[in-house]
Design a protein around this nucleic acid. Sequence first.
DNA 1: TTTGCATACATTGCTTTACAAAGTACCTGG
DNA 2: CCAGGTACTTTGTAAAGCAATGTATGCAAA
Lengths: 110, 110
Amino acid sequence: MAKIETQMLKGTLDNAILMIIAQGETYGYALLQQLQDAGFGVIPEGTVYPLLLKMQRNGLIVAHRHAIATGPDRKYYRITAAGEAHLQAFLPQWKQLTTAMNRLIAGQEG
Amino acid sequence: MAKIETQMLKGTLDNAILMIIAQGETYGYALLQQLQDAGFGVIPEGTVYPLLLKMQRNGLIVAHRHAIATGPDRKYYRITAAGEAHLQAFLPQWKQLTTAMNRLIAGQEG
DNA sequence: TTTGCATACATTGCTTTACAAAGTACCTGG
DNA sequence: CCAGGTACTTTGTAAAGCAATGTATGCAAA
């Protein structure tokens, strides 16, 4: 999986993570793999963990720590109503940006 | 035209500008309007002009100043071979990012 | 036993980027 | 004359991704 230019992820990665959480409770370390599976390439821990903390501070997600049989505790995240609202605000912006870009790209190739 | 969250433009806006220049020589002040027409919303001068200077330093575009009959001089920009190569490297990354995001969004709605 | 590795999360500091704000300068219309 | 549109520049700020480093747990191999 190719690595996406990091600048391009700004303002997008957080919403990607929020969508993954919205589609099923998960925890940080698992998210690293889920992001890769989704096609974002390798996203380092130093990116994901601070992001999760920030989203928690902003009330977009809530966490609850869970001890498991084997290995360190996990922090599971769930999306909040504010998080859902945030996603609803993001979607049209993403649409606008990709529409504008794809039109330029079409003019580039065609 | 709605305003796109500025973080989302990082690493994308430069390539949008590069594509506009690739599709026909233009100058900074005209670019402001072209970006808006393309659907990016209002992009301020404090964003576009520094970006053009940086792209020039990086050899992606070349400029030549042109005096016109009425009003201040204009700096017209043309894309270079390095600029074309830069675009060719950008396109698959953009494709990868939008593919990954759109798949998540589909899972969000469907 | 102990070394190493995978799991799991947190923190500090760096770099890049969009942007606000302010400035310079030209020309036209009221 | 002066307000406003045209046209470009510069300085400083805030935000985000990430490298690097650290902490801690449990298991497997040596």
